[in-house]
Simulated assay, not measured.
Amino acid sequence: MFHQLRVGAVERITDDAVAVTFDVPHALRETFRHVPGQHLNVRYQAAGGEEIRRSYSLCSPAVAAPDPPVLRVGIRLVDGGTFSTYALEELAVGDRVEAMAPSGRFTLEPRPGLFAAVVGGSGITPVLSIAATLLAREPLARFCLVRGDRTVASTMFLDEVADLKDRYPDRFHLVTALSREEQTAGLPAGRLDQERLASLLPALLPVPDVAGWFLCGPYGLVRGARGALRALHVDRGRIHQEIFHVADATPPAAGTTAPDAAPTGGAPGFEVPAAATLTATLHGRSGSWPVENGDSLLETVLRRRTDAPYACKGGVCGTCRAFLVRGEVRMDRNYALEPEETEAGFVLACQSHPLTPEVAIDFDR
């Protein structure tokens, strides 16, 4: 369900990025109280009446009741991006934007221990919320942030990260690598690729002692960081990832459930059925409909239920996550679900196509 939120502030934080803060009405405070690392799905009517949905991570610390929640997101301009262009060029204080309640599983509930993140570009956004909330609430927690950016001028949330460094000098460790600019101190210029991270991370912190790794940013960086951690024998259950951009990635072959995972779609030998029926449960109501013209499961549901959850339709945000109750499906792409989720039976409806005559999914699980 979407709710109208008033824009309370729009701050230019780099030449191509803004931070937008939304005011939360008193009646919606509990609806919009977020867990650190979650995101907002927003909806916008573009010129001509086209409905645009986008997902933006919350950078603000999570606030416990009875204090009002603070909803602040970071938006970087994307080439040709309808909503990001609108946010940077037109969005103003007092405007109304429709948003769903915070969602997402790239989260960390504060607890004692050592945690670390590897982020690139706008991937700092959810990690800023995670680190700020953790350090404020848990005095026995430590956090190491390794971030990569192009230049100092293009780095989002410089002041907020510097504030964490000043506030928690003994518990917050920051390492920055710039790919297009030399620094007077710190790492030499260059990308944070798998080879570099595999040698850098053990020199920064005791890798086996890290309770949780949070990887966020472009596909190439996240995949490289994950590969480095696996080479360092980090258990995959301690690695959490959220991918923001996949334009530089070649889509996985049909049938794979993740860019770096083995196929788990249907059993070998399955052929796409000539006709298939989808049964979907959403908000406690179920319906059955034919899957037409090679449509995805999400497209099939949207023809009858406009309240079906989605944002990116590209296999990135995870908003359309559903539990596969019956049947077999093929996922074209998956950049959102963890291996544990696909093994448990969850799929991305926007990327899933039936491999059996009958398929049933449940969005409510």
Rank of each mutant, 00 (worst) to 15 (best):
E195N: 13
L178S: 02
T184R: 13
L201R: 06
E195I: 11
D209Y: 00
V207E: 03
L197E: 04
L200C: 03
E181R: 07
G212D: 12
L204D: 08
V207W: 01
Y219C: 15
R191I: 06
W213F: 11
L200H: 05
L192H: 10
Q194H: 10
P202R: 06
A189Y: 01
E195F: 10
L201P: 03
F214Y: 15
R191F: 14
L204F: 05
A189F: 00
D209P: 00
Q194G: 13
R171Y: 07
P208Q: 03
L221V: 09
V175D: 00
H173L: 13
R191L: 14
R191A: 11
L178F: 06
T184M: 06
L215V: 11
V222L: 04
P206G: 12
A211N: 05
A198Y: 01
E181Q: 15
T184P: 00
W213M: 08
A203H: 09
P202A: 08
E181A: 08
L174Q: 04
A203T: 15
A185G: 10
E181N: 10
D209Q: 12
A203L: 12
G190S: 10
S199I: 07
L200E: 04
H173A: 13
D193G: 06
L197C: 07
L197Q: 04
P208N: 06
G190C: 09
L200T: 06
L215K: 04
L201N: 03
A198P: 00
L221Y: 11
A211F: 01
A189H: 03
F214E: 04
P206C: 08
C216I: 01
E182G: 08
R180P: 07
L178I: 01
V207Y: 02
L178E: 00
Y219N: 14
T184V: 09
L178T: 01
F172D: 12
L192T: 06
Q194S: 15
Q194E: 15
H173E: 14
V222R: 00
T184G: 14
L178D: 01
L178R: 03
P208H: 04
A189G: 02
L200W: 04
L197R: 07
T176A: 05
A203D: 13
L205F: 03
C216G: 05
L174P: 00
T176V: 13
P218W: 10
R180C: 13
S199R: 13
A211S: 14
V207P: 00
F214H: 12
L197T: 05
E181G: 12
G190N: 12
A177Y: 02
P206W: 10
L192D: 05
P208A: 02
V175K: 00
S179L: 01
W213K: 11
P208W: 03
Y219K: 12
Y219W: 14
F172R: 09
G220M: 12
Q194A: 15
V175P: 00
F214C: 07
R196G: 05
S199N: 03
A203Q: 14
L201A: 08
Q183A: 15
L221R: 05
Q183D: 12
L221Q: 09
E181I: 06
C216S: 09
R191H: 14
S199K: 07
G190Y: 07
V210I: 09
P188R: 13
R196S: 02
C216T: 03
E195T: 14
F172K: 10
A211T: 03
P206L: 06
L205H: 06
